[in-house]
């Protein structure tokens, strides 16, 4: 395994996600300004382009649970797990919920760190 793959293959974020309608639980494995990578213990079979409301919990950061409106942009099977790219739908999530999402992004990007 190359060092490059080892570096890029390890994400440094953690928050819990719940997709109620589909009954799926997983984790936020990587956060960006526009969305996040979700990781699920099983393959994720929803069709690309699906709009999904994702519940997010990050109790360790002191955040109350919140929901984000997303579109499924990509998915793949990775050693039995489902890796999924969620893009935030502009204008569909409340500002309060987006603020919470940004707190998670900032927490893992090194900005606005707080003790938990």
């Amino acid at each position: 395994m190359s060092d490059e793959r080892r570096e890029t293959g390890r994400d440094r974020s953690f928050a819990r996600i719940l997709i109620r309608v589909e009954g799926r639980v997983g984790y936020i494995a990587d956060v960006s300004d526009f969305g996040f990578k979700g990781l699920f213990p099983e393959p994720f079979l929803e069709p690309l382009g699906s709009r999904l409301v994702v519940g997010v919990s990050f109790e360790e950061l002191g955040l109350a649970a919140f929901e984000l409106s997303t579109v499924l942009r990509w998915s793949r099977l990775a050693q039995g797990a489902g890796e999924v790219g969620f893009e935030l739908v502009q204008g569909s999530s409340s500002e309060d919920d987006l603020v919470k999402f940004r707190k998670i992004r900032d927490y893992y990007s090194g900005g606005n760190l707080r003790s938990t």
Partner: peptide, 18 residues
């Protein structure tokens, strides 16, 4: 979280991130 990100697991039949 950072500590666990530093672990390289032996070859498992399960996704190491999970």
């Amino acid at each position: 979280v950072d500590n666990f990100a530093e672990i390289g697991y032996p070859a498992l039949m399960v996704n190491p991130e999970i």
